[in-house]
């Protein structure tokens, strides 16, 4: 017969041993789980910041957009979708969407075509390339307000360099910023001057990653320059080109500073863009509910276009 005390002692010992083993196993499972999902844990700080600074403001913006929120007079009344209805009844808002899309299309297309051309030129190992490349990329390093001030002087109808040059050549001067037919194109030109170098750098990086042996093999097969460009360069550059389009698309969609500094949305409403419209409603009239609705429309427009485009890009990349 085992004494009662010893039996209790043994069962206690068994219990503790079992507990330690199970704890060890549990820890092991935890450790393994942690190790397997370490990549997710590392994302937690960034995720929290994303929630705090992107998701929460977006949700809050959506909440505000359902209210008549007059900041100065401290009015905050629920109005449902009325702000959105008013937005789509406002001709100025609709024309500002049209102007923005026009700016996006013109600027992005020209910058990508020009940037690709310049990148091909710089990739051709020309003499003086090392000096020229930093010079060509200078415009994107200047503050936009300085760029605008310089271009406003260049565009001056009476005394500007461009019109003086046209007069010298015997042409009539152009109302660069005061003619509603070309004011938007004049601003697009400034954006092209400033941001084509960015596209150039993205494409040049892509070009330099294409191995030389592909061209050598093509040359051996008797391919000419255009054929090599069409069948080697262009397909291998397509990701960089699409990336440049996506980045410029998102950036040009937000166009505000150049329009604000150069035309203020004029002449008339010819260069009024969505950002300028939102700025005016939000920071000049302090109609924050209405401005929030307009900004949400803009976010969904950009997001819609970007997601569709990016999904296609990634799909092609996977293939």
């Amino acid at each position: 017969m085992v004494p009662e005390g010893a039996r209790v002692q043994r069962s206690l010992g068994f219990f503790f041993r079992e507990a330690i083993v199970r704890l060890g196993r549990g820890c092991n499972v935890l450790r393994l789980t942690f190790e397997r999902s370490i990549h997710l844990w590392l994302l937690v700080p960034a995720g929290l910041l994303f929630l705090m600074f992107t998701v929460f403001p977006l949700i809050y913006n959506g909440y505000i957009s359902l209210h008549h929120f007059q900041f100065i007079r401290r009015i905050f009344n629920f109005v449902g979708a009325r702000n959105y209805i008013r937005l789509f009844q406002d001709g100025l808002f609709l024309s500002s969407i049209g102007n923005t899309l026009r700016f996006v299309a013109l600027a992005t297309a020209t910058e990508v075509v020009l940037g690709t051309g310049l990148a091909l030129l710089f990739n051709a190992r020309l003499r003086g390339r090392r000096i020229m490349l930093p010079l060509v990329t200078l415009p994107m390093m200047f503050p936009t307000m300085v760029v605008c001030a310089v271009w406003v002087m260049l565009y001056d109808f009476e005394f500007g360099f461009l019109n003086n040059f046209l007069r010298f050549l015997g042409f009539s001067p152009i109302q660069w910023l005061s003619d509603p037919k070309i004011a938007m194109e004049s601003i697009v030109l400034v954006d092209i001057w400033q941001w084509t170098p960015f596209v150039l750098l993205v494409i040049l990086a892509g070009l330099q990653s294409i191995p030389d042996y592909l061209y050598e093999a093509a040359q051996l097969d008797g391919a000419n320059g255009f054929q090599m460009f069409r069948h080697i360069t262009l397909p291998l550059l397509s990701f960089q080109i699409k990336l440049a389009i996506l980045l410029r698309l998102i950036d040009t969609f937000r166009i505000f500073d150049k329009v604000y500094a150069m035309t203020g949305g004029g002449p008339g409403y010819a260069t009024e863009t969505i950002s300028l419209y939102i700025y005016r409603e939000g920071f000049r009239y302090f109609n924050l509910g209405y401005a929030a609705a307009a900004s949400l429309v803009m976010v969904f427009l950009v997001l819609g276009i970007s997601i569709l485009y990016a999904r296609r890009m990634w799909k092609e990349l996977r293939v």
């Binding site: 004029g266 008339g268 005016r280």
Partner: peptide, 22 residues
Amino acid sequence: VPVWSRVEDILGGYMHEALIGL
């Protein structure tokens, strides 16, 4: 009037359209 900035922007926009012949 408290809505002067809005009134000014509206008037300034339409007057500008007349000034440039639109």
